[in-house]
């Protein structure tokens, strides 16, 4: 059985539909706009989507283990505001500030995770509280308008490109995204990743199998915080400083994950599909812009998608079960 070597979309994981959706959107883009007549257009799309895809990967880790992370949007804002203030336009500050930003992301994830696992507060509430705390702190600190400025070197990962033979100019953010995605796929395929999904499915069974459920959950929150910090760095480089930069990103990431067929409540779904969900969402917004739909409609569209995706998942599960009834089961090889 070599299926462990190949990733293949599986109906039972709910991964197949999102790939179809993504393919349709990408083809539609080619028809809708001249910018997508060559690879550069798609590369630009990937670059725009990179922060959201990275956030979605972090969100996936939390959701699949049975939680939610609503704090990532305001964490992104906080990170960007902190970066501008501390760097203050000086290239010499870039390196230590990046390290500090990543550390701050880990810290927020750690607090989220510890309160969820030790104090047994549902993660929905913990991270909602964290969202408000971070929002308030940013407002208090900036008084509404962020101060300081980013350095040129800080903005390179978000908007710079690397000259790669054959491929030409490849954005740094796309390369970073690839590294994160490959890392996440390898992690999810390994024993710890599989156990993380099992935690979302039945944490009792994992605990009684000798697993450290709390540590695994903590790991998910910390990863989500760290990835949010990374997304913030890319986003700041790409879009610059504002106190609204992260607004609503938590729901966008959750929408992406759900669109990827990941079960809310945990226990089912693939990280590739979650990433594809994020990319689909970004592609959809690009398409809507191209055909002239108002940007104001984005959140409405997102609302419809999240409801439809969950409804499809619920309905689909029933349908799949019906199809399974008494199929003859041959013995295992």
């Amino acid at each position: 059985m070599n299926s462990r070597l190949k990733w293949r979309p599986r109906l039972t994981d709910g991964t197949a539909p999102v790939l179809v959706v993504l393919a349709v959107l990408l083809v539609a883009l080619a028809f809708a706009g001249p910018a997508y007549s060559e690879p550069a257009g798609y590369l630009a799309l990937l670059k725009r989507a990179a922060p959201l895809v990275i956030l979605a990967i972090g969100q996936y880790l939390v959701i699949v283990s049975g939680g939610f992370d609503l704090s990532v949007g305001s964490l992104v804002t906080a990170e960007v505001v902190i970066a501008a203030r501390l760097i203050n336009g000086d290239d010499g500050n870039t390196v230590w500030v990046v390290a500090l930003l990543l550390g701050f992301g880990v810290l927020v994830g750690l607090v989220n995770g510890l309160i969820t696992t030790r104090l047994l507060v549902p993660s929905f509430i913990v991270t909602l509280g964290m969202l408000l705390v971070l929002d308030g702190a940013v407002f208090l600190w900036t008084g509404g308008a962020p101060r300081g400025a980013l350095s040129e070197s800080f903005r390179v990962p978000g908007r710079g490109s690397l000259e790669i033979p054959v491929l030409g100019q490849v954005p740094w953010s796309v390369l970073i995204l690839l590294v994160v995605l490959v890392g996440a796929v390898l992690f999810m395929r390994g024993g710890t990743g599989r156990t993380l999904i099992a935690v979302g499915d039945n944490e009792n069974a994992v605990r009684l199998a000798g697993g450290r459920v709390d540590r695994l959950r903590l790991l998910a929150f910390v990863s989500s915080g760290l990835l949010a910090a990374l997304a913030a760095i890319l986003l700041a480089g790409f879009a610059g400083v504002s106190a609204q930069v992260g607004r609503g990103l938590e729901f966008r990431a959750i929408t992406a994950v759900v669109l990827g067929g990941v079960l809310l409540g945990g226990g089912r779904g693939s990280v590739v599909a979650a990433a594809a969900g994020a990319l689909s969402l970004e592609a959809l917004f690009s398409l809507l812009k191209l055909v002239g739909v108002s940007g104001a409609l984005e959140s409405a569209v997102q609302g419809v998608i999240i409801i439809a995706a969950v409804a499809y998942a619920a309905h689909g599960a029933g349908l799949r079960q019906k199809l399974r009834i008494r199929k003859p089961a041959p013995a295992l090889p």
Binding site: R194, T195, A198, V206, A209, G210, G211
Partner: peptide, 12 residues
């Protein structure tokens, strides 16, 4: 995944 659950969870 279930058959490997204990091995992965406890004896990584």
């Amino acid at each position: 995944d279930n058959a490997l659950l204990v091995r992965r969870a406890a004896l990584r």
